[in-house]
Amino acid sequence: MTVKIEAKMRGNVLVGVNPMGLKQEVANQIQYVKAQGTYAGPKKVLVIGGSSSYGLASRINLAFGAGADTISVSHGGGPRTPKNLGKPGWYNNIFFREAAEAEGLIAKNVMADAFSNEAKAQVIDFIKNEFGGKVDFVVYSLASGVRTDPATGETYHSAIKAIGEPVVGPNVNLQKETFFEQVLEPATDEEIANTVKVMGGEDWRLWMTALREADVLSEGVQTVVYSYLGAELNESYYNKGTLGRAKADCDRFAALINEDLAPLKGQATVVVATAVTTKASSVIPFFPVYCLGLYKVMSDAGLHETPIMHIDRIFRDMIYGDNAVYDEAGRMRPDAWELDPDIQAKTKALIEQINQDNFNTDFTAWNIFMHEFLNLNGFDVDGYVETPVTFEELASLEA
């Protein structure tokens, strides 16, 4: 039975999926990396949260740029019915694995709750028995709003909220294409703590501890977690909100992991990335409007990046290159392009002029943002030729 492919939206959430469009999108990202050439990097990589966005881009870059064998841990199901074709990440994992194995690389997909002890045990067993025994790079790139603590069994939910006082600002409804004023209420102490529990650095350290105690980390191992600090324009709802508290927690745990890795001469680094289009960026209050302004300014300056472009620069030029930039806290700062004072001044001036009449026109980066947003689920993909596919064909794919 041929499935019907539709780009369905609910507010700022894209719920439809185009599997073969995702295959083309993965191929496009691989081609981008290959076009930049190869570089000397790690050879045995674990990506925790490798099915989409920065995690997927990291896996693609390290495999096709540095020739690395990779393991990805992610949670997301495949097709259930002709009307429920599953999650984009499930297909991304499969199409990445197919492309990597075609070039002789190991590409293991572990489909499990990355917060669980079972996932950690499964990965360690694979490293010991089928991956050469050690990993030399670990990427932590989980994006989840829910976490069950494996030690207590208690489940926590994050909350994207302000802290202290409400925040009022402009937002857009992507589905209805409407521009409106939103009020973001302040979080309770419990909501702040829960957000840190879900999105902070605790699980990153649990992973690194489990890997270290199992003796599957190489000497000199490196690990990174992706963070975002943003600028004055968005600090009231991001860096000074619950999300910022979670990011600060990652800084704290980076220091602890560095102490843990000292005997191995390892390094844990918080990488402060730039604003890009992800499923999260579309639902964070006010953030889409910030992107509409920022992307326009950065695109005009020739500096706008998609996740694969940004990650390629991080690995090729900074982590394994000679152009690393750090701040006083020891965080790597590839977000310097976004935070350039001239870029921020122009973005602020543009955002102040955005309204209902112009937010979805060429006055902003609406077309860029929506193109990248649709790409996340396999729609509006460059080079994609419509390909009929049956439910049976999709259900037969192996993760």
Rank of each mutant, 00 (worst) to 15 (best):
F359D: 06
C250I: 15
P186S: 07
G145D: 12
G50S: 12
F179H: 04
K134Y: 11
V110K: 02
G241R: 02
D327V: 01
V33S: 05
A248W: 14
R97P: 03
S396H: 07
E191K: 04
K296M: 11
P170S: 14
R316P: 04
V45G: 00
V45E: 08
T148W: 13
S74V: 05
V110E: 06
T347C: 10
G78E: 06
P88H: 08
G133F: 11
I5Y: 02
E202S: 09
A159L: 08
N171T: 11
T155H: 06
V73C: 02
M208F: 10
Y295P: 01
P82L: 04
A35Y: 10
D382W: 03
K4N: 13
L174G: 02
Q267D: 11
A280W: 06
L243A: 10
N234Y: 08
F126L: 15
E352K: 13
A193D: 14
V381T: 06
E202Q: 14
D327R: 08
R252K: 13
P79Q: 03
L243D: 03
H75M: 12
A248N: 15
L85E: 00
D69K: 01
I308K: 00
L256A: 02
V385W: 01
Q24E: 14
L184P: 00
G132R: 03
C250F: 02
L142P: 05
I343N: 12
V276N: 10
R212A: 13
D340N: 15
G153V: 08
M309G: 07
W204G: 03
S158G: 10
L85G: 00
E118C: 06
T148I: 13
N129H: 13
L256M: 09
D260L: 15
A121V: 04
E328C: 08
T2H: 11
V47W: 02
E191D: 07
L294R: 01
A151H: 06
T387G: 01
F96D: 01
Q182D: 09
S218V: 05
Y91I: 04
F286V: 00
W337V: 15
S218D: 13
Y140M: 14
K161D: 01
F180M: 14
D335V: 11
G77Y: 15
M370V: 10
V289K: 06
A365M: 07
D362I: 04
Q175N: 09
I314R: 01
K128E: 11
N355S: 11
V15A: 03
Y228G: 02
P166N: 06
I60V: 14
R59Y: 11
D215A: 15
E118G: 10
P88A: 07
S74W: 14
V146N: 10
D327S: 01
K247M: 15
T195L: 07
I257W: 05
P263W: 05
A68F: 05
S144C: 08
T155Y: 02
M332R: 00
L229E: 13
E386A: 14
A254E: 03
D327P: 01
C250Y: 06
T387K: 09
F315Q: 01
M20Y: 13
A57F: 04
R80I: 15
T278V: 09
P79H: 01
M9W: 14
V225T: 04
D380I: 05
P288D: 10
F180R: 02
F96T: 01
P79I: 08
